[in-house]
Design a protein around this nucleic acid. Sequence first.
DNA 1: TACTGCATGTAATCGGTTACATGATTGC
DNA 2: GCAATCATGTAACCGATTACATGCAGTA
Lengths: 193, 193
Amino acid sequence: MSLRHALLAVLDAGPMTGYELAKQFDQSASQIWHAPHPQIYTELRKLEREELVAADEQLRGTKAVKRAYRLTAAGERELRRWASEVEEPQRFRDAAYLKASYFEYPEPDVVRRQFEVHRACHEEQLRRWERHAELLRAREPELLRKRLAGAPESGHEAIVAYKVHVYEGMAERARTEIAWAERGLALVAKMSG
Amino acid sequence: MSLRHALLAVLDAGPMTGYELAKQFDQSASQIWHAPHPQIYTELRKLEREELVAADEQLRGTKAVKRAYRLTAAGERELRRWASEVEEPQRFRDAAYLKASYFEYPEPDVVRRQFEVHRACHEEQLRRWERHAELLRAREPELLRKRLAGAPESGHEAIVAYKVHVYEGMAERARTEIAWAERGLALVAKMSG
DNA sequence: TACTGCATGTAATCGGTTACATGATTGC
DNA sequence: GCAATCATGTAACCGATTACATGCAGTA
């Protein structure tokens, strides 16, 4: 049930259409909570029915409509309520580690390739997290700028600091995974040679 | 779709009832892939229909039946196929980090409590992963012993080594989270004092 | 004019969660 | 005999994924 709060949080920076939200979720900011676009559109409709967001409709061409969503007062309250509530720990489920528990089955070079893919994938993510932390420190992302514009000067430092802390945390995680994959590769080499 | 493979993997050590599998998933071994018992029972029935597992029924009392599941030859093939296939990266979704991105909203002591909960939760997990890695090295867990009994001596080292590597990886992750929470606590202290 | 990418959805399906039900066994 | 726990499910629901549909805008 966190998608709704991710949406409320992004909308807190300013109004946005479903498509723009979908883009946010896919690339720049909220890689912290992935969501495919059909889910975003349907969740926005649900939030609208619950009056946590409101939509401003504009015509697009002759028939199609564009809907820009913005937070309502109730939506802002809900966002603040959620942020103050302690998050209960998530259930654990990791497909890569599950599979690695059974690496005695495949041939050594298949195992090696799997660790290499794991490493490559987290190296790419690491670059992304680091770049984004950098952008945040420079206060460059559009979303952050809008958010800062709507908040008093005195609060700016905290807004930036916690987001940077999150992205640095993600980077640290990626480094942990890379190190794990490398120890894995050393292990394959030892076992098979 | 990894639950089915987790089940096949556990059953590869030897036949087991749904209840015993549910216990495995809840406590000792496969904390790597959490699953509640209703899902386990239904997935087992599905695996049975697909003939990847077979059930031996025994009476329990006068009406109830106990069903012990075991791998079929097709099930073993599927397990090996899955273990050799490169796992595609999972979609990212983290509620705790999402919330931490918006820690400018709650009061500092609420934020502090949240980081403390995060740390405590991962400290507990760390102890669990470390204990389990220890047990694996000593070849103590029942499941591992059964798995080893059904494999040639020459393969024992690999079976143990990869599982230990997974649990050590999990422990390392937990340490990363603990360190993140502690840097978070330092950050709150700095911001609020 | 056709093609590609932007933009907004609906529908079917599936995996996972929660609540509920029911019988068997064991120890007090 | 009763409570707790072992054991096996069913049903309703919800969040997430995938496939499909449709219209608009710019450009080759």
